[in-house]
Structures are given as C-alpha cells and as structure tokens.
C-alpha cells in the first residue's frame, strides 16, 4: 500500500518542483526536517527521477522536430523485448520508448533538430536484425504536452473582488 503522505508530497512536487521543504511542511503540517527526510528517501529509491521545468520551446524560438515511430520487432531466444528496447532507448535523441499492445510492438518518440536526423535514426533502426518494420509519423503541431495546454494561457477571468 502506498503511503498517502509520500503520495501527497509527490503530487505537490510534480505540480511545482520549486516548492521548498519548508513550504511543503507548512502545507502538510509536518516539520521541515521530516519533509526533507521523505524527499531524500524518494530520491534515493528512484521514485523522484529528476526536477525539471516544462518549457514551451517553440515560443522560446527553438524549433525541434518530433517524430513517433511504430516499430515491429521479432524477439529472439535470449533477446526479449527488454533487451530490444534497451538497444533503442540508450540513444539520447529518444525521448520515450513504450512496449505496446496491438498492431506494433514499440512506440518510440524522437526529438531532434532536423528532419534529416530523423531519417538517419530510422535508417539505423531498420538495419537492426530484430526490427521487422518501422512506420514514422511526424508531429505537425503540439496542443497539449505533459498535461499542459500549450497555447491557452492560464488566465484568471474572475472579478478581483467578489462577496
């Protein structure tokens, strides 16, 4: 059973990684030391993976190319999905790799600077013995990412004072 206190700290940090241990302690009615201890445990146990910012790169003037590649593979003896996935996810340009049910096996998300790089990556992928086929989809526009709607500013429309 997951500890509800740990879950609460995680959801606070997921929403805003910049909260200090002191602020979290206030919100959850704990001591600062207690919160620091729990956060340290969560980091040590590999539950908190990293603290990052969600960035609207296009707005920042940086253009990136995103592609989703459906990959069909044939796992061989002693060479299962996990090993195949590892061969792929170690490439730094790979953002995520999921094992899927359905028409194909691995869903690979790629983020690079140019279309040519996508082409080179797919070529590399297709040359692996265990890869049966690949289908590449380019992302044309991002509307929502990591739960955040990108081009709809979170505006407070309320009256400033109301009874």
């Amino acid at each position: 059973m997951a500890d509800p206190l740990r879950l609460e700290i995680l959801s606070l940090l997921e929403e805003n990684a910049r909260l200090t241990a002191e602020q979290i302690a206030h919100m959850l009615d704990l001591s600062k030391e207690n919160v620091e201890q729990i956060i340290k445990e969560l980091q040590d146990e590999g539950i908190i993976l990293k603290y990052g910012a969600s960035i609207h790169w296009r707005k920042a003037g940086k253009r990136r190319v995103n592609a989703l590649i459906d990959v069909k593979v044939t796992p061989q003896h002693g060479y299962g999905f996990d090993t195949v996935a590892r061969r792929i996810y170690l490439f730094p340009e790979v953002q995520s790799v999921y094992l899927m049910s359905g028409a194909y096996d691995l869903s690979v998300a790629l983020e690079v600077d140019t279309m040519e790089e996508v082409g080179r990556f797919v070529e590399k992928l297709a040359s692996f013995d265990f890869v049966v086929s690949t289908t590449t989809h380019f992302v044309l526009k991002k509307y929502k990412e990591d739960g955040i709607i990108l081009d709809e500013p979170d505006k407070d429309r309320r009256l400033v004072i109301s009874p």
């Binding site: 400033v160 004072i161 109301s162 009874p163």
Partner: peptide
Amino acid sequence: PSGIRRFFDLVNTKPDAISLGVGEPD
C-alpha cells in the same frame, strides 16, 4: 450600497494585484 463595491473600484486601479478578495473557486 455594498462595501465590497467601493473597494472593488479601488482595486481596479491596480491591475497587477494578487487578489485574495475573490469569493469563488479558481
């Protein structure tokens, strides 16, 4: 006249204010 109304006019001169005066969910 509502006391809030009068105060509302004053607050409106500060468009960048953080409001803790709102009686409705965010």
